[in-house]
Design a protein around this nucleic acid. Structure first.
Lengths: 188, 188, 188, 188
DNA sequence: AATGAATGAGAATTCATTCAT
DNA sequence: AATGAATGAATTCTCATTCAT
């Protein structure tokens, strides 16, 4: 009888624990020893679950995207009215800000060093799409071109905050964007 | 007889030549040998002009920001009418897209690994400000809150394109943003 | 209820199964995991039967030599006439060629890394002796000096084939050697 | 002006110095640090001259074979009479015994771990051929089949001595082989 | 007995940096 | 000033061995 460990489940835990480490220092700058130490295992164990640093990183990206998608979905599930959804999305996006930033850091890193293949790209786009959709619902936007623009605003705030700007925030910028949109559409 | 070269001038040339290399691979991932080879000198020469990889990188950031600022300014100088400026800025931002993306890559990289000090930050902000101003003039925006929002849109497009999205572009998104702004303000 | 297996018997089976693996890759180059996988058990099981890689290897050498000796002996047992023996030895040596090569590989490997102790050495010499004797009988050689020379020829063929030469074979070279011997002795 | 080093010449010196180290411990068992230390340089320097352990080993094999061939040739060059040649070959083979053994060790090692390509093989065969030829001249053998047999005897002595047998030697076994040959041919 | 997860010392290799020329 | 050889600490990764189940 072997030691009882759900290999796959544990692998996912290790990935979750490495998330911050990779996001903070970047793929190239963090060492496997630092990762191992940071999540409390030996390098040997790390390599027992992942064949290489690169694969670990790829799985990290994948899991973090998929989890993000699931989280948004599940948040939406148990609510019926638009008002409820709006509240939840607003709450969600503020609460997830740090995570969103880290996720974007990871993705930028990933793009720089890997020839991003279609599967990965679609995963990222799907994730982004969910976030855009959630925000679009919050702001009651239907025009797809404007949803895209909204995506840019979100990404812009993300990048701004990633680079340390404290003058902008999701609430403020999205709020302003919502107002402008409302004002412009009233006219039509 | 020493070669007649202005030490400082040559240093700047080396920085200019390293720009793409650092932007493409990232600070941690590129090696000094790769940089040296990429710009056609020996590692020894590189170390003759820069005491360390880190300092080289810092000077790279600084020079690239300052140059960007100067470029925008000079572009604006010789034009009087708004229309002329608009044309030039539009042309400029499209033409510089790739450079802007690389610059942002570098800056993200820099922020991840250095405790950004006020001097650096102000440099970056000044640079960003110039770009925002240029774009603001193009779109005839005066409200500072909206200029900030515009900054987010620009950054968002930048991030989007950095991550490989081909569905968005400065022209399209800024155009749309301009329209919405116009529509919303007409009402007032 | 423990499984009904003779511990010692099973150990021997494991040794037999590891023979090829060690011979093909060499002691230093093969890993215990590869061995375990190759013979269809877990590393834990391997270590249950052998305290270390080194001991496993030593026992492998010993068992393979002893088995070789027994095989030659048993082949000889049930035959009385010289002719019969000759036929069997000839058959045996051709049929065992691959095994002999592997055995020699193992032994070379062993000598390189271990201070060969007298017990081991005598084992090897006894084995070699048997083979020489068998071949000597086949060729009806009695002079001990010439038996030694015969040993060299056998070893030479072994080494040649180990290194991939397809131009020589036991049958051919031993045959030629026999002829020369016959020719030279007729004269006396 | 760079440090004045004949890169290629120094590479060859490093190879020559590594010869014994690899032969004694075997490719898999020796570490690059041990090699570096053994030849008095840093690991970094080793990797400055050889891209990998494997390539170092391959070049080692090649250089050692080629050198062997050249040595035999040069030894033969300046001598006219058969007697002189015989003396030199006898001297050579005894004096080179240890080197021949090590070379064979290396080659066995090489064969075990590399898919030997035709170029390598022909190098080895050419080297072997030279040795056979030299010995054949010494013993005045012309029949190609018997030269091949002679090769087996040489290889057999080589293997025997490699495995520690002190009862056989080139002089003794080749001498005996020569006598037998002479005896057998006189009859014809 | 049997498994395979866990360990950490040690392997190959890289790379910022120094230094002789 | 310029070169590239040399260094060795640090990196990624491996593997004999141990141990909980």
């Amino acid at each position: 009888m072997p030691k009882i460990v759900d290999h796959d489940q544990y692998r996912k835990e290790l990935l979750a624990k490495s998330f911050n480490l990779f996001a903070e220092k970047g793929y190239a700058a963090i060492t496997m020893r630092q990762v191992a130490q940071g999540i409390g295992v030996s390098t040997g164990t790390l390599y027992h679950y992942f064949p290489s640093k690169e694969v670990l990183f790829e799985q990290l990206i994948e899991q973090s995207c998929q989890e993000s998608i699931l989280t948004v979905q599940s948040r939406m599930k148990n609510t019926q009215t638009l008002r409820e959804r709006l509240a939840l999305v607003a709450e969600y996006i503020e609460e997830q800000e740090e995570k969103l930033i880290r996720q974007t850091q990871l993705w930028i890193d990933f793009c720089q060093h890997h020839a991003v293949n279609p599967k990965d790209l679609s995963l990222w786009q799907r994730m982004n799409h969910r976030h855009e959709q959630a925000a679009a619902e919050m702001l009651e936007i239907t025009n797809p071109e404007i949803v895209k623009l909204l995506g840019c605003v979100i990404d812009g705030v993300l990048l701004g905050r990633m680079l340390g700007s404290r003058e902008i925030s999701f609430t403020k910028q999205l709020g302003l964007f919502g107002e402008i949109l409302a004002a412009s559409s009233e006219k039509n």
